[in-house]
């Protein structure tokens, strides 16, 4: 340790042994600050939008014949009194401390409602992400390594089709074949995790496939083109000049470099998967966040809409933060650049 910290000659100036961790820490901190800023701005946007939304929840709940006193009492109870700033701060403060407010319609804490649903939506999106990565990586690598050959054409044709298929339609077709005709799966509904992990996974299998396949098609295409770009790089030729076979060069030098653009897409896909899962939940009648949000919109239960939207946006921003960290782990240049 002591030795490596001494400053040397023209490339010195920095303490060599501590560069990676110090830079990584700085990079992480910077990304974290930007994460927090994004969350603050996003929450302001969401709050403002819900504020402009017409209709007073209290009068909506009590109907047109409500007494003014009852109305005022309810407004106070729902936290609708006070200036915009104080209400925003109260909402954010509540969110941070785990108090998401009370549902207008059900009069139960939003957190409880969200909590149950989250355990459907989050596993669904994660499962789909996992599945699409597991399909896309081998497919993309295979296509790239067989560039221009029949195998490549086949994979590319399949992905071209996969990209074009709407996931909810694909979901309906899966239900038609595997639930209605073959009866391997149930057509919808969710048994709950208390019936066991396998039962839960069984119920999420078809939805996850429906969500994952179109995304896998996109990811496989990105993986292929990114790999092909890397295969044209000078350092791949250097690797071959060392005596690596084409395959070795691809695995040892190509993949990690190709991963950088692929990570970006994985980050973006998470947001598509979340949005997609909201739609897919409709097909399979899954009691997830999607169902909750549509029920809340029709009941004008705006506090629930607000909280769920914030939660979705939070997950996307969080995911992007993780992707940024993954970048830096993959690419040492990034740590130095910031």
């Amino acid at each position: 340790m002591e030795f490596s910290q001494i400053t040397f000659g023209r490339t010195g100036r920095r303490r060599t042994a501590r560069i990676p961790s110090a830079l990584m820490l700085r990079y992480t901190l910077k990304r974290f600050v930007s994460l927090v800023l994004s969350l603050v701005v996003a929450s302001m946007v969401i709050f403002t939008v819900i504020e402009i939304a017409p209709g007073d929840p209290a009068s909506f709940m009590l109907g047109i014949n409500a007494q003014p006193e009852t109305l005022a009492a309810l407004r106070a109870e729902l936290g609708l009194e006070g200036s915009k700033t104080t209400r925003y701060l109260a909402w954010i403060g509540g969110m941070v401390t785990g108090d998401f407010g009370t549902s207008y319609t059900y009069r139960t804490p939003v957190l409880d409602m969200v909590g149950d649903r989250l355990w459907v939506s989050l596993p669904l999106a994660s499962l789909a992400l996992l599945l699409s990565t597991l399909i896309a990586f081998p497919a993309g690598i295979y296509a790239a390594s067989r560039r221009g050959q029949a195998g490549d054409m086949g994979v590319m044709g399949a992905t071209q089709l996969g990209v074009a298929v709407p996931n909810f339609w694909f979901a309906m077709m899966l239900v038609l074949v595997f639930a209605i005709n073959l009866r391997w799966f149930s057509a919808g509904g969710f048994v709950g995790w208390d019936k066991g992990l396998l039962a839960g996974l069984h119920a999420l299998t078809l939805p996850a496939i429906a969500l994952a396949l179109p995304q896998a098609a996109i990811l496989a295409r990105v993986m292929r083109s990114s790999l092909l770009d890397v295969l044209g790089e000078d350092f791949m030729r250097t690797a071959r000049a060392k005596g690596l076979s084409e395959r070795q060069a691809l695995w040892r030098h190509g993949l990690r470099n190709a991963l950088i653009p692929v990570l970006t897409i994985i980050g973006l896909q998470f947001s598509f998967l979340l949005a997609g899962s909201i739609i897919i939940e409709q097909v399979f009648y899954l009691p997830g966040l999607g169902r909750l949000i549509f029920q809340s919109i029709s009941a004008r239960d705006l506090i629930v809409v607000e909280s769920v939207v914030m939660l979705l946006v939070f997950s996307v921003i969080m995911m992007n933060f993780l992707v940024d960290l993954a970048y830096a782990a993959v690419d040492p240049r990034l740590r130095a650049r910031t």
Binding site: E233, D234, F235, R237, T238, A239, R240, A241, K242, G243, L244, H253, R256, N257, V330, D331, P332, R333
Partner: peptide
């Protein structure tokens, strides 16, 4: 290659794998 014949390329900025 690499064992009996070695090769050096023109562009040192891109001839090395940036992530190793």
């Amino acid at each position: 290659r690499g064992n009996e014949i070695g090769m050096v390329f023109q562009e040192p900025m891109t001839a090395l794998n940036p992530v190793q």
